[in-house]
């Protein structure tokens, strides 16, 4: 079963059940389904409640020039995977996401963000149940004049909760890119895990690029790891590729493609993986 939702400033088109009041549009996902959510504009908060035990995919297509507030409630034992898609290059977007994951439920997000838009992406994920899980992946390119900031926070509030974030980025031209990854393990969240990895390669030494990892741990019995690196593109690699007749522009594309591709291996959902692979291919290799 597949559902289409389109939200504009004035209207909501949806074949999925929802409530619409002054402040919030709330959708109820009561059975397993694939949802295409197209947001053209919205001044209201958009909320999804995923019921117990369902498995759903959510493709969030954003095509607007404003601040958006999204909220996902993922209930016990449900599995939700999301992919945010932005295709338009001329947008300036601030996206705020609040995600609550309860007992044994999983939120998996894999976002391939390759448009030249300006983007501030804030996501706060609360693991609010025993063995709740979140896996948040970003593969992104910032080029031309694009400014992109990603703030990803995962709060391990319960025992056995698992949080992982992976950020991979490439920056070129006059663009900038900042990754802030935060893992917060609350006291009492025994055997919780918080892992994060952020990597950026730049094609110019003057580029603004930051990968900042923050781990705040208030519990002793946990597992946590982080790795963050910003590096310039390898000159020897570039020379090697060019020595086979490939010009600078295409060589940087190949390196970018090769750099972002391994993130696909972190995605468990096969169809999402395929979708993202196509996106990387078309967006990077064109």
């Amino acid at each position: 079963m597949k559902h289409f939702i389109e939200i504009t400033k004035e209207q909501v088109h949806s074949d999925l059940e929802y409530n619409n009041n002054d402040e919030i549009i709330e959708f109820f996902v009561t059975e397993s389904t694939d949802i295409d959510l197209l947001i053209a504009d919205s001044a209201k908060k958009i909320k999804f409640s995923f019921f117990n035990n369902i498995a759903s995919s959510l493709t969030t297509i954003i095509n607007c020039n404003s601040e958006l507030n999204l909220e996902y409630q993922i209930n016990d034992n449900a599995y939700v995977y999301e992919s945010v898609v932005i295709e338009n290059d001329d947008l300036n977007i601030q996206l705020n996401k609040q995600v609550v994951v309860t007992k044994e439920a999983t939120y998996e997000a894999s976002n391939g963000l390759f448009s030249d838009c300006h983007l501030t992406y804030n996501v706060n994920i609360d693991l609010n149940g025993l063995a709740a899980q979140a896996l948040h992946n970003i593969a992104t390119i910032s080029r031309n004049e694009s400014k992109k900031i990603y703030n990803v926070t995962i709060n391990n509030n319960y025992p056995l909760s698992y949080g992982e974030l992976n950020n991979f980025g490439v920056v070129k031209d006059q663009a900038s890119l900042i990754f802030n990854g935060t893992g917060y393990i609350k006291n009492g969240a025994k055997q919780a895990q918080a892992h994060q990895e952020s990597k950026i390669i730049t094609f110019d030494p003057l580029i603004i690029a930051e990968a900042n990892p923050y781990l705040i741990i208030d519990e002793a019995d946990v597992e946590a790891s982080h790795a963050a690196a910003v590096g310039q593109m390898d000159e020897e690699q570039l020379y090697y590729i060019q020595s086979r007749g490939i010009d600078f522009e295409n060589a940087t594309r190949l390196i970018t493609y090769g750099y972002l591709k391994p993130i696909l291996n972190k995605i468990s959902d096969e169809s999402l993986k395929e979708k993202l692979e196509k996106l990387i291919e078309t967006k990077v290799m064109l």
Binding site: Y240, R244, L254, I255, G258
Partner: peptide, 30 residues
Amino acid sequence: LSVDERARLGIFLGMQYPTEVSGVTNSDFL
């Protein structure tokens, strides 16, 4: 001329220490 221009004119260098390129298959590269 740049490296790639020389290569396209028909010069090839088999390197003493070939570089690794992650994520790009040998076949796609060729």
